[in-house]
Nucleic acid binder design. Structure first.
Lengths: 164, 164
DNA sequence: AGATCACTGTACAACCTGCCCAGTGGAAAA
DNA sequence: TTTTCCACTGGGCAGGTTGTACAGTGATCT
């Protein structure tokens, strides 16, 4: 027999097969295309086409290596909410980007705030990072919280599992 | 000639070659071992050994697929800081983990707070997610900010580039 | 009905992987 | 100093995988 797919292609970006494929790759990212096709019970060409399509659509942006920062010596993760001077978000963002330990910055609603995730090797080190942030021109106020634990590590799984 | 490495193996977890390898894989994650060895100018076995070692040490935990949630239809990212009832962190964490749109939860210093990252398809959808969070038993107060932009997307690069 | 599209199943050459081994030289231990 | 240890090199081999192509099938769209 042949097809069975596309019975469902409303305006959904991902169909069931896409989701199953992504879940499979989430669990075992080093799987080859052929192995995926075996696990999913479809032809190799189909898996290949799906992957290409996901990449083309911008849904699948790559397979970056996942690094454990703690194992790399950066045992501390901290978050900072900062208030900045009006109209200097661009400038402040660039200043933050120049700090190695700053791993992520978001501009958020609220009082024109920035939200920062950073890492450090130790409390001392964290202090230095915070000092660096405070020294960025335009930063007015900063409040820091240290991550004590991570009950829910970064995940996308539930969103995929819900499909189909 | 042979070796040239291990001139530097103090207590560093990663040496220069490790870092270069990880950077290479960060940029082009689908590269095979052989291609990596060519780009780095070392023998294939060396790359293989380094990768194995990084995995063994827990530094390299895998190559999960990177998904663009926006391209998947989840155009909104929001953060929430929540205050919870004393001694119910475990319980609240589990409640949060059960919500699909909750992508990350950290317990932080401060007043026994949790920090949540979530996504949603639309403002309406976000409202539902927030409602779900508020309904988790033990949650006392919640303040939400929507991410307007992401001046510094999640990154590890600077930490690697600094090595050697 | 005809065109279009996604999927299947097959095929083939080129390539890569996992694995093994001998040899070399630097660094640490004896 | 000599020996041992260790990381890296460079080579080889079998088996599996990739990239690519193509014909065939059935469902959907026009």
């Amino acid at each position: 027999m042949a097809s069975d797919g596309q019975a469902e292609h409303s305006d959904q970006v991902l169909d069931g097969l896409d989701a199953r494929l992504l879940l499979l790759l989430t669990d075992e990212p080093r799987l080859g295309v052929l192995e995926c096709s075996r696990r999913l019970g479809v032809a190799r060409g189909t898996v290949q086409a799906r992957l290409d399509r996901l990449v083309a659509r911008g849904v699948l942006t790559g397979f970056p290596p996942a690094l454990d920062l703690a194992a790399m010596g950066y045992g501390l993760t901290a978050f900072a909410v900062l208030e900045i001077a009006q109209g200097r978000r661009q400038e402040v963002s660039e200043g933050l980007a120049a700090i190695n330990e700053v791993c992520e910055v978001h501009a958020t609603t609220g009082q024109g705030d920035l939200f920062v995730r950073m890492v450090a090797r130790s409390n001392d080190d964290l202090q230095h990072v915070i000092d660096e942030i405070v020294d960025v021109p335009g930063v007015q106020r900063l409040s820091t919280s240290i991550a004590l634990s991570t009950p829910v590590p970064p995940r996308v799984r539930p969103l995929l599992e819900r499909i189909r």
